[in-house]
């Protein structure tokens, strides 16, 4: 079933459009002379390899999330709409397995496209004369994959209960809030307003993509240690979200 989800997802032309545009954009920006990206201090990040990697990972985070939301928003609603889910659920296979297969299929598709989007990073390292940094990219890929899996899980969960566009909106919203969770968390911790605890609870429920991204970027920064507990938290969140997807399909009537 996972293979079928993967094959069906890979027939989605929108994925190739987004991935293709992202690939070309990254090639132009990172490996070519495609403009400047300045940090808060006004330094051009694209000038050196480490800075280019930071920009590259940020781009992959955005593009990859967009791709995975486009993928995950429609997999389950499509099954409900054309009623192919009926033919699966009348078989002696548990709903947990069916839900798990859809989720894993979506995650695997996102990972295939993630690998495609990582190719410009290697070209960038060669162009910037720092091919010795390649192993750091390999080390960072699992973390990027974890972040994409988290967004996939949230969007898939939403898609069990709502139509594809609404699920995509939820996915984008969660991705957006999660990206700014650091800033929002700081506001919540210093605020004495009555909504501050609610904001903290809301942030607690968001996937820890921001934390995972920050820890991963340390691979390309000046020698700070990586906190593996953040990754463990991400994996736990993924496990819980997968459980909710399965539980939702178990409860949902088709």
């Amino acid at each position: 079933m996972i293979a079928n989800v993967l094959r069906e997802n890979l027939r989605n032309k929108a994925l190739y459009v987004i991935t293709g545009i992202g690939f070309l954009l990254m090639m132009a920006m990172l490996a070519g002379q495609g403009g400047t990206v300045k940090d808060a201090a006004g330094n051009d990040l694209l000038k050196d390899a480490l800075g280019a990697m930071r920009v590259g990972f940020a781009l992959i985070g955005v593009l990859g999330s967009l791709v995975t939301i486009v993928l995950s928003m429609s997999t389950m609603p499509r099954e409900f709409e054309r009623k192919t889910i009926h033919l699966l659920l009348v078989r002696p296979v548990s709903r947990w397995q069916v839900a798990g297969s859809f989720l894993v299929g979506n995650i695997l598709t996102a990972w295939v496209l993630l690998l495609v989007l990582c190719v410009p990073l290697f070209f960038a390292l060669t162009a910037k004369g720092a091919p010795d940094l390649a192993p750091r990219i390999f080390a960072a890929i699992p973390a990027l994959a974890l972040n994409l899996a988290l967004i996939t899980a949230v969007t898939t969960l939403a898609s069990v209960w709502m139509p594809a566009p609404a699920a995509a909106f939820v996915g984008l919203l969660v991705y957006g809030f999660a990206a700014f969770s650091g800033t929002l968390g700081a506001i919540a911790s210093i605020s004495r307003e009555s909504w501050a605890p609610l904001l903290k609870l809301f942030l607690f429920l968001l996937p820890p993509t921001d934390g995972v991204a920050r820890e991963t970027l340390k691979l390309f920064g000046p020698g700070a240690g990586i906190d593996l507990r953040v990754y463990a938290g991400g994996l736990f969140y993924l496990w819980a979200a997968a459980g909710l997807v399965a539980g939702s399909l178990y409860r949902r009537e088709v």
Binding site: R11, K83, H86
Partner: peptide, 11 residues
Amino acid sequence: YSPETPHFYPF
């Protein structure tokens, strides 16, 4: 079970 409006994986 044979559904009224069957859809299958086209590939």
